[in-house]
Design a protein around this nucleic acid. Structure first.
Length: 556
DNA sequence: AACAAATGCGCC
DNA sequence: AAAGGGCGCATTTGTT
């Protein structure tokens, strides 16, 4: 399908090999035609980019079951080939498949002009090519490239899940997260005082700033300025490297307590205060825009409203409509479970059965000390060794050698500048030319100690990235497939149960109270199904904590 | 005045 | 001995 900026477009049914099954249709009401096709056939829509096409369909009241997002698929396939930086929109993909010069960027949509923007790049090169033909060619070419990777069935799943995720993302933005402005406002007033005039600080912050000044002997100190705060501490004979909260917590000075409180409240005020409410909540809904695959690891990013960083306190304002409830599903300890499944470490997989994984590991090797087990595992997955994690990791390795070796191998690959891949085939970007230059300089026989040390540091840094990539990206895939499966399972409940929020390993649904129990079961079943899709017959379990609540803050 | 980097903190 | 993955956003500080 080739949409036009004016709401019309061209489409044509094709078979699985791209062969035409009917004529190209040119319609003025694309949404209406899509709805008809959905009714009679339920096709997989091949289109340029869900984020550009689907929101408008949703506004017209049209949902689709399946799609193939050419841009997202292109990104995955380019990444597989180690060509992460190249343009991934469908026009570039088309040019690439023809061996022609690849246009850098899609033309900006220009609604007013008669020449539809999406047609331009094709028209510019070869005026006689129909965009529907070009898109079909890209789709066929992508299928061919998927078939060429070493586990085509997994890449096929990834491409399908990414597209399904893009549909879910647009639907979540469309539906929105239920948001009670009155509750949020009351919360802000309770913590900060009444809403201040534009440009002014709320009363509670002014009061805390005064206390901070007084604690520094009456000097004027702007608590928002780290440099000033550091100087003020120095003046009182207290050397602090920075004003980070965790640093200040270890400092003995009367200004610390009000400073910490100030930081906390000032962040609430500036990041999720009244102006946030005015910018992002409309008609009782918070509608963030999700960027599917926006993070290298395949996690989603978001644009606007810091949707994926909603602080716990403001979740109090997320309240189901009357007669509705929120079903909040949170996958527990996904990343270590993913590591268990990825590595095939039998003993580790056993402790990654049902229940608390960290406790299981603790019982196995750390004498029941859950905290040490957690530190050891985080260090394995992130590459950190602070807080005495190094020896703990060594203990972990003795008991779970394959699991630890799996992440160590990924780290070595990164240190050597090689790429690594997730379970389904998402590929880490190659390191930059600057990185290679530094690392190679360090390996040079004539290199000095400084260069060697820098090279080692830089190489290890990239190793930490690839070490984490294999786990984080595979975890993101499990969650992506969960969303895709769940979306399918919820289709019969359209209008009574909607996905409204997704955050890495947590989904929130808004549904009528009377269907909540059945929805809860769908969520659980989707978790089991996602595990089977991504990892096959693994003994590892991915338990989902599912709460049915009126308010998001009450989940778990 | 406009832009970029650094700082700090929220989430997973 | 030290060494910690991925983001978005607001504010301050430094540069042009």
């Amino acid at each position: 399908m080739a949409p036009r900026p004016d709401g019309g477009g061209r489409l044509r049914p094709v078979g699985v090999d791209g062969e035409p099954l009917g004529p190209v249709e040119e319609v003025d009401d694309l949404a209406g035609r899509v709805a008809e096709w959905e009714r009679v056939a339920g096709p997989r829509w091949v289109w340029p980019a869900t984020a550009e096409v689907y929101p408008e369909l949703l506004r017209a009241g049209v949902r689709v079951r399946r799609c193939h997002d050419l841009g997202l698929a292109e990104g995955l396939l380019l990444g597989w080939a180690g060509r992460h930086g190249e343009p991934r929109w469908w026009g570039a993909a088309w040019a690439r498949s023809r061996g022609g010069p690849v246009p850098a960027d899609p033309p900006a949509p220009r609604r007013e002009e008669s020449q539809p923007a999406l047609f331009e790049p094709v028209a510019a090169g070869t005026p006689d090519v129909d965009p529907v033909d070009a898109m079909t060619a890209v789709w066929v070419d992508q299928a061919r490239r998927v078939a060429g990777v070493d586990r085509p069935e997994l890449m096929r799943l990834l491409v399908a899940a990414e597209s399904a995720g893009s549909l879910a993302a647009a639907e979540m933005s469309h539906h929105g997260l239920p948001w009670r402005v009155d509750v949020h406002d009351a919360l802000l007033t309770e913590l900060l005082g009444p809403r201040p005039a534009v440009g002014a600080r709320p009363g509670r912050l002014v009061e805390l700033a005064d206390r901070i000044g007084a604690a520094f002997g009456g000097r004027a100190v702007n608590p928002d300025s780290p440099a000033e705060v550091v100087r003020a501490f120095a003046h009182d004979g207290v050397a602090v490297p920075s004003t980070r909260s965790w640093v200040l917590r270890g400092v003995d000075h009367p200004a610390v307590e009000p400073l910490l409180r100030y930081k906390e409240l000032s962040r609430l005020f500036s990041a999720h205060g009244w102006s946030w409410l005015e910018s992002w909540v409309r008609g009782g809904r918070f509608r963030p825009e999700y960027v599917v695959g926006g993070v290298v690891s395949g996690r989603w990013a978001s644009r606007g409203g810091a949707a994926l960083q909603l602080p716990r306190v403001v979740r109090r304002a997320v309240v189901a409509d009357p007669g509705w409830v929120l079903v909040v599903a949170d996958a527990a300890q996904v990343e270590p479970r993913v590591l268990a499944a990825l590595s095939g470490d039998r003993r580790f997989a056993e402790v990654a059965g049902e229940g608390d994984l960290y406790a299981g590991v603790a019982a196995e090797v750390f004498g029941g000390d859950r905290q040490r087990a957690k530190v050891a595992l985080l260090s394995a997955m992130y590459g950190g060794t602070s807080g005495g994690a190094g020896p703990l990791l060594a203990v972990l390795r003795q008991r779970f050698p394959e699991a630890v070796e799996f992440v160590e191998a990924a780290a070595r690959a990164g240190e050597e500048g090689r790429m690594v891949r997730s379970r389904l085939g998402r590929t880490s970007p190659p390191p930059s030319a600057g990185w290679r230059a530094v690392v190679e300089q360090g390996a040079d026989p004539g290199a000095g100690e400084v260069e060697e040390r820098q090279a080692r540091r830089v190489a290890r840094g990239w190793g930490r990235f690839t070490r984490n990539f294999v786990v984080q990206a595979s975890a993101a895939e499990w969650a992506l497939v969960l969303v895709a499966v769940l979306r399918g399972r919820l289709a019969p409940w359209a209008g009574s149960a909607e996905l409204v929020f997704f955050q890495h390993d947590e989904v929130v649904l808004h549904c009528r109270r009377e269907v909540a129990d059945r929805v809860r079961e769908e969520v659980r079943a989707a978790g089991v199904e996602a595990t089977r899709w991504v990892f096959g017959a693994t003994p590892v379990r991915f338990p989902l904590g599912v709460s049915v609540v009126d308010c998001y803050v009450d989940a778990k």
